[in-house]
Design a protein around this nucleic acid. Structure first.
Length: 373
RNA sequence: GGAGGAGUACCCAAGUGGCUAAAGGGGACGGACUGUAAAUCCGUUAGCUAAGCUUUCAGUGGUUCAAAUCCACUCUCCUCCA
């Protein structure tokens, strides 16, 4: 197996850890935040810009690229890296989340999932094997097993059946995949909010020996405390010498809580999506830049930020761009939000290195407004 | 001077007797967003002592149990003719 995880340091004041992942397209310092580029682009950004923001790995999506432009086309283009001009590591999601989010448009059975395209309604079928075939064609550095992300809340029996099927699918993904030298494969722990199901899922997947392990089915609407609880008993079941990836988490508090429980990787559309919808994450909390109170605020989005946006543009200007529906508005806020989270993870890594993660978290929460002082 | 047309809330615009405090857009204001069907979606937008009440559809007066809607006059704007 080519993917290498090096555990550099375990935090003294929490379960956080510092590490380094080596992929065929470069190294990743962990804990890391991974920007999402579903359709082979981090929306509104060029790959060069994403790299300049400090991103060391990005996500892309099996389901979306399979529909458009088609994974065979991407393969003919020379693979996803070449196609989109990103030469760093890429992680591809398996399409499992779409199984969860497409609702009415899909039907799950043992063999796989029948989908209807959200684009034109055409019928499609994705199985674990098909998902791997697509991800092989894309050539991502890290592939994900095809899974089902169970909604919250879900009852015990449904969650159990689903989790067991996800485990069987994981086995099929692993058996189908061949080129382990160039592409790693992560298993995804499911089991909803049920401890015994999470334990069973983690146990069975760890036994299969994947390149790394993801925790799926969290951050789907449950309270933060519940996510923390699930992480508390699930993360310790995962091997220390492999990366641990919490899927779909991207608000600062969720990232902190995940990292202090031993998570190494996380991805989320949140920073890029809310950026396009007019919200910035700052050290002093959320800034809904469209609000009237910023119309004459000539200071930066975040006075403590040194990103391109904050160095050069004012809140009043960005608000104006949103008000008149200019493309640059989306770009400027996206640059800031991505930089903010990438930088936050760097600050978190430094705090782990210096054994002061818990105090950094406290300080950050107070300023951000998560806790009142 | 003559003939015709039009004036509805911040803007555009529907409504031509009661179900209209008034459709729909836009704007403004606020909110949501967490492995992206998202430059998206949702809410508010006459005033108030807000379950209820008060004042609105150019203005004034009238008809009617009831008027943005019907009638009269006035004002303003537009088009055509002289």
């Amino acid at each position: 197996m080519t993917l290498k995880y090096e555990l550099i340091k375990e935090s003294k004041d929490s379960k956080a850890r510092l590490g380094k992942i080596t992929t065929p397209h470069g190294e990743i310092e962990t804990p890391v935040f991974m920007p999402v580029g579903t359709r082979a682009t981090v929306k509104a950004m060029t790959p060069e810009e994403v790299k300049d923001l400090g991103a060391s790995i990005i996500l892309s999506n099996t389901y979306h690229l399979y529909l458009k432009p088609g994974h065979e086309l991407v393969k003919r283009a020379g693979g996803l890296h070449k196609f989109m001009n990103w030469d760093g590591p890429i992680l591809t999601d398996s399409g499992g989340f779409q199984v969860f989010s497409l609702g009415e448009l899909r039907k799950i059975r043992e063999e796989g999932v029948d989908f209807r395209s959200h684009i034109d309604g055409s019928k499609h079928f994705i199985s674990p094997e098909k998902s791997i075939e697509i991800q092989n064609a894309l050539g991502s550095d890290i592939m994900m097993c095809f899974d089902e992300c169970v909604p919250y809340p879900s009852d015990y029996d449904y969650t159990k059946d689903s989790m067991e099927r996800t485990t069987r699918w994981a086995k099929r993904c692993k058996d189908f995949h061949e080129d382990w030298d160039n592409q790693a494969l992560f298993g995804i722990v499911q089991g909803g909010m049920y401890k015994d199901l999470r334990e069973k899922s983690a146990h069975d997947l760890v036994e299969m020996e994947f390149s790394g392990y993801a925790i799926g089915g969290l951050s789907v609407g449950e309270p933060l405390e519940l996510m923390n609880e699930v992480l508390d008993y699930t993360v310790p079941l995962l091997p220390k010498d492999k990366p641990r990836y919490l899927m779909g988490v991207g608000s600062p508090d969720y990232l902190f809580e995940a990292v202090i429980r031993g998570i190494d990787m996380a991805d989320c559309v949140l920073p890029t999506r809310i950026a396009r919808n007019g919200t910035a994450m700052t050290n002093n909390g959320k800034v809904v830049i469209r609000n009237a109170k910023y119309s004459e605020d000539f200071g930066p989005l975040d006075s403590e930020c040194d990103c391109y946006t904050c160095k050069n543009y004012s809140r009043a200007y960005i608000r104006h761009l949103f008000n008149v529906d200019e493309i640059l508005a989306l770009r400027l806020t996206t640059i800031h939000n991505l930089y903010f989270l990438i930088k936050l993870m760097e600050r978190i890594r430094n705090a782990i290195r210096e054994d002061r993660l818990m105090s950094f978290r406290e300080e950050f929460y107070k300023k951000y407004g998560y806790i009142e002082d």
